[in-house]
Design a protein around this nucleic acid. Structure first.
Length: 272
DNA sequence: AGTGCGGCCTGTCCGC
DNA sequence: TGCGGACAGGCCGCAC
């Protein structure tokens, strides 16, 4: 399940192979993704040169001079760079071929992901219009988060997973960051004081940066573009560790469902 | 406007 | 061994 660190890992991995390359061919085998792939994607992309690979939240953005292609990996998606034409396997939905003979292959069994065409990249895609700050940017500040949190009654975990508040914090890293900050996942957002908000921001940033350094988290199906797993799963403190001892205090890690999402926490390290 | 929940998907796992 | 059902969860879109 790719979250921001996984997507960042993928962006860094594919950039050397696609930046500066011209698209020669596009094959769409399955256009029924989260949103239908735009008609005639091949004609739109053909002969475009990819100038830059960027990321916004969990979207990979391939920018050409005037337009952009946005790729979201959903839950189960990945992209890989292939050197030669390998026969496509099940769920290999889209190929983008470049003039350096490399091929970017989009694979997504659950089809929760998306490939979006943006004609004019001077403004952001409408799907990103409501996006809040990047968690690793200065815009994700104590004053921003505190101002948002004090008006909201929802659980703090729900708040930090809201893309309008901050992008790219998914279920795994939300649990991990709250553990690190010593904050209970179900604390009402409005009850957090400035010290806790500060600690939470630091924890989110620390957790995401460490995960990027480790090449992302591999639980079931995340592989980087070389097909290698990430190693952050070895650094998880609470996620998936139900009934196992907390590394800090040895209490049993607990979990429950919060709005349909598995939520893990340490009952003694996360008091308020 | 905030909140909560259903739906989209398929692979995997569990119990019968 | 087969089969149904639960689960995984990002994110939208709807209802209240």
């Amino acid at each position: 399940m790719p979250e921001l660190p996984e997507v960042e890992t993928v962006c860094r991995g594919i950039a050397p192979f696609v930046e500066g390359q011209k698209i020669t061919r596009v094959i769409v085998r399955e256009s029924r993704l989260r949103w239908p792939v735009v008609d005639n994607l091949e004609n739109k992309l053909k002969n475009l040169k990819i100038l830059q690979v960027a990321r916004r939240g969990k979207y990979i953005i391939l920018n050409s001079q005037k337009s952009a292609l946005l790729i979201h990996l959903g839950m189960s998606g990945h992209v890989r760079i292939l050197s030669k034409q390998e026969s496509p396997k099940k769920h290999d939905h889209i190929d983008i071929c470049f003039d350096n003979k490399k091929l970017l292959r989009y694979h997504d069994p659950r089809r929760f992901g998306a490939v979006l065409w943006q004609e004019d990249n001077r403004q952001q895609h409408f799907r990103l219009a409501h996006y809040g700050p990047e968690p690793l940017s200065r815009d994700f500040s104590v004053s921003w988060l505190h101002a948002k949190a004090r008006k909201r009654q929802c659980a703090i975990k729900t708040l930090i997973m809201d893309n309008k508040i901050v992008v790219g914090v998914g279920n795994i890293y939300a649990s991990e960051a709250l553990f690190r900050a010593g904050i209970k996942p179900d604390s009402p957002a409005s009850t957090l004081n400035e010290i806790q908000i500060t600690r939470l921001i630091q924890s989110i940033q620390y957790t995401l940066k460490l995960a990027i350094k480790r090449g992302g988290t591999t639980l079931k199906d995340f592989l980087d573009m070389n097909g290698n797993p990430g190693y952050f799963s070895q650094s998880l403190n609470v996620y998936g560790r139900v009934n196992q001892p907390c590394y800090t205090c040895h209490s049993k890690i607990k979990h429950y469902k919060m709005q349909g999402r598995a939520t893990y926490y340490c009952p003694s390290c996360q008091k308020r």
